[in-house]
């Protein structure tokens, strides 16, 4: 399979999944308790008012027609109105999403940049002291809840050692946030810790697996050894499982953002989702779910493309 046909095929698959997601989200919107009318007009609305609202909003139309209308709105970026924040859902998301992406992408990138070399380094020194110490620290990092780890980091690096602010940057846009990098350190670290632990564990395992493969023996029999063996042969072969997993970590990272944003008072998607859930602001909730679902699909798509770049067999389906 050539690159264009591979990409087109994967994109089409992703589109189908996204379409299915819209069906689910639409179904959820549709089954809101009392319907959207009750949500917007409040519990005191009379049946007449509700009927009038439904007629006005097209909610008396047959369900398939409503779905098509919903889809049409989606395409034009209309996700409906928030019940509580007096703003459009898409407006809220365009304001908050970039800021959350700063944290999640930052954590993800940091986790990959640290976790991958760390795992390989450990594998090359398996069962020696350094490996065992890092394994222990990884286990702790993985099993410590993010809110607790974040608190510890604040106490250590903000209160005891005044290196970083305990509050994330409050700028209104991603650009403004990025202008204060010191404030991002603790939130990104908090978000990345567990992922670093997971990625390095995976990478360590994959590297150890590969070190026992026949091709490593062949390379060694040709006089290749040391770092050239590790970086030139083993790295690329060990990356595939880690990259695949990184794709699945997109929703996990968004889940982590919920905690991190709460802890560092950072108004992103996580806080938006949290407050919407507390005030039963369903359009906002479902808008967030849609965005996170689409981000997950895009994440796995990117992971697939990265895998095809690493391993030529992926494209021909022969891996």
């Amino acid at each position: 399979m050539t690159w264009p046909s591979f990409l087109i095929r994967r994109l089409l698959q992703a589109l189908v999944v996204i379409l299915l997601i819209t069906v689910v989200v639409f179904g959820l919107l549709h089954s809101l308790p009392g319907g959207p009318a009750r949500g917007i007009l409040g519990a005191q609305a009379t049946p007449d008012q509700i009927a009038a609202f439904n007629a006005e909003q097209g909610l008396d139309q047959p369900v398939p027609a409503q779905y098509l209308a919903y889809l049409g709105d989606l395409v034009t970026g209309d996700l409906g109105e928030s019940y509580t924040l007096n703003s459009s859902v898409s407006g809220l998301i365009t304001e908050r999403l970039p800021k959350t992406l700063v944290i999640t992408a930052g954590s993800g990138l940091l986790a990959l940049l640290v976790g991958i070399p760390l795992g390989m380094w450990q594998a090359a020194r398996r069962n020696r002291l350094a490996d065992q110490v890092i394994t222990g620290v990884s286990m702790i990092a993985y099993s410590t809840p993010a809110f607790f780890l974040g608190l510890l980091l604040i106490i250590a690096f903000s209160l005891n050692l005044p290196w970083f602010p305990s509050q994330a940057p409050q700028g209104a846009s991603a650009g403004a946030v990025l202008a204060e990098p010191a404030g991002l350190v603790l939130p990104i670290l908090t978000g990345a810790a567990a992922m670093i632990a997971v990625f390095s564990r995976y990478m360590r395992g994959a590297t150890l697996d590969n070190l026992n493969q026949d091709y490593v023996r062949t390379a060694r029999a040709g006089g290749t050894g040391g770092s050239r063996l590790l970086w030139g042969h083993v790295l690329r072969n060990s990356l595939t499982p880690v990259v695949a997993m990184a794709g699945y970590y997109v929703p996990v990272a968004f889940g982590g953002a919920l905690v991190v944003e709460q802890l560092f008072n950072y108004p992103g998607m996580g806080l938006l989702f949290w407050s919407a859930a507390q005030s039963s602001d369903f359009p906002v909730l479902l808008g967030c779910i849609l965005v996170i679902s689409v981000a997950t699909v895009v994440g796995t798509l990117l992971a697939d493309i990265a895998q095809a770049l690493i391993d030529p067999r992926v494209k021909v389906g022969q891996s």
Binding site: R217, T218, D311, R313
Partner: peptide, 14 residues
């Protein structure tokens, strides 16, 4: 120089 038994796995696939 050394030649091995299993040519299917003896080379780096990537």
């Amino acid at each position: 120089g050394m030649v091995f038994q299993e040519p299917a796995t003896a080379l780096n696939p990537l």
